[in-house]
Computed example of a mutant assay.
Amino acid sequence: MASADSVQQALEKFADTFQRHEKAGDLAKLTRHVLSLLGDADTRARGVETLIQLQDQLHIARRLGNFVEEANAVEAIAGRMRTDDAYCLDSPLPMVQAEQSDEMKALIKQMQEADLQSRPYEFLNTADSEEMTVNISVPAETQMKDVSVKLSATKIRVEIKGHEMQPCIIDGSFFQAVDPAGCDHHLEGSGAKRMLVIDLEKKQNGLKWPDLLGYGAM
């Protein structure tokens, strides 16, 4: 990525990079959607919102050690877009520091920890077990009829009636494939400790997942 690139040129390069990656096709689609929306003044606001969605997905990828340069650049672009209405696709790409200061690294670590704490679920897994568990706190009155868990080998969507997060608690692509036949869910506990427990089974053992969901989920 050249320092003289415009925002449009940079995003187009990112889309091409994502497209070449076997697990980042959704990132490529989202990036091209951003370009389409930002290219029209009437849809700029929606474009900025979609750009922030792309930024959030790239934050996940960056935590896994992927697309670090792209994540940093999109973060800088989104920051300028949100604060400067004149900043557009033809504008030059913001400068992104190649190396982070200790203060910035500490800030990023705090943001990552806050991100983990703000998630609506607890994810438990180890490298030496094919079984994984997702725990979700639910309203005390929740019954199985209030719960919808739809999953395939690659995707999961969880809806819970009465939960503060609507329309869904989880909606995205797994970090890696699971075996749907080995997955199940149930409710346990009562009152403030009422919980939906989702049991998952990895298709490939020997790897500790960094998170339930992979990057690029839309």
Rank of each mutant, 00 (worst) to 15 (best):
S36F: 15
H186R: 06
G182C: 04
E159T: 10
E70D: 01
Q112M: 07
T17N: 10
E69N: 09
A15D: 10
C183E: 09
E130V: 15
M111L: 12
G216F: 08
K109L: 11
L212C: 02
S101C: 10
K161G: 01
L151A: 07
H59M: 14
D102Q: 11
E122I: 12
G206C: 03
E164Y: 14
D42G: 08
A76F: 01
N125K: 04
S101K: 07
I156F: 04
V7T: 11
L151G: 06
H59A: 13
T17I: 14
Q110M: 13
K155D: 11
E131K: 15
P180Q: 07
V197C: 07
P180W: 06
A140G: 00
R46A: 09
A41S: 14
H163G: 03
I156Q: 03
K208P: 01
E113V: 10
D128M: 06
I52Y: 07
G47C: 04
E75H: 13
V34N: 05
E188C: 10
L35R: 02
T142W: 00
A45D: 13
H163P: 05
N205E: 14
V74G: 02
G216R: 10
V149G: 06
R62V: 02
M195R: 08
M132W: 03
T43L: 06
Q110H: 11
D184R: 11
A98T: 12
I136W: 00
M104S: 05
D56A: 10
L107D: 08
D171A: 07
A78Y: 10
D90F: 02
D102H: 08
